[in-house]
Design a protein around this nucleic acid. Structure first.
Lengths: 147, 147
DNA sequence: GTAAAAGCTAAACCTAACTTTAGGTCAAGT
DNA sequence: ACTTGACCTAAAGTTAGGTTTAGCTTTTAC
């Protein structure tokens, strides 16, 4: 069973142009054609599922291509593939830590403008900075701006 | 007290060209000059601290400019500013949820290649898919690929 | 058998956020 | 006065990840 580029585009809700772009970038190393027309098989469908995941985790296209090439090469590249995912996992956990601090910063800003609106001005808040905010807010402030 | 563009660049560990770019984009609405040369004051230093935070939370330059303009306009824009931060907070929490699923996917992939290496092949794992993985791994798989 | 729909390619275009380049000005020290 | 280093601008270049365009060919439906 094979699928046309249009069917695949619909399955994954991707523009056809994106699929052609991925192909051009070498993301479907074993894609076949019949008189010039691409025939997507289960292999490419699986590849697309992996591509969506890897892209979602922040991997660049060229690194996804590398991974696809390793898959084509067989079991001798298990170590490389595993190390790729380990590096991605480390990078993603760092990113989540960073976002967590940014979230605290944003929560602080929300409190700031809530309070400024209630007060009708920023003077009272400014007088509390940088060390005399309400304890729960102080925590957000320290996490968001000082670490 | 004012600072030269070079001093500010060093303080924030940013290239001079980036500061000029920010200025061109309108991120320092009250930046002054003496015979053409930029004089950065505390106002711009504060602005830069805010810029770094907003950028880190994913805001685009044009939205940061909007925020700076609102700040210049005074208390009548408190509501807009607050809503900007609330929208950012929602977007960031959605992004963290997404990354959390991606992390599970990556953890699954790490387990997959660990196991493939130990087994010397993927056959045993493939036979367990998609519903008969070890329970802890199954959880990662379901979270990473199916939700 | 013909017309529309779907497919193809190469190449140009797009956006964000900078960076680099080219050519000129300003300021500080000797 | 002069040299050197820091500063200036406008405009072009860069990168990633596509998208659009123009001009074709192939397939499908009637």
């Amino acid at each position: 069973m094979t699928y046309s580029i249009g069917q695949v585009a619909e399955m994954f809700d991707l523009p056809i142009s994106t699929l052609r772009y991925y192909d051009k970038e070498g993301l479907f190393p074993s894609l076949e054609r019949k008189s010039g027309i691409r025939k997507f098989s289960e292999v490419e469908i699986d590849a697309l599922r992996v591509i969506e995941c890897l892209k979602g985790s922040g991997l660049e296209i060229k690194d996804i291509k590398q991974f696809m090439d390793w898959c084509t090469q067989g079991p001798e590249t298990y170590v490389q593939r595993k190390e790729l995912f380990e590096r991605r996992l480390d990078a993603l956990e760092e990113e989540m830590t960073r976002l967590s601090r940014m979230r605290d910063m944003l929560k602080y800003k929300c409190w700031y403008y809530d309070t400024a609106l209630a007060d009708g001005g920023e003077e009272r808040i400014q007088a509390m900075l940088p060390d005399n905010l309400p304890p729960d807010v102080q925590e957000l402030y320290d996490s968001g701006f000082r670490s």
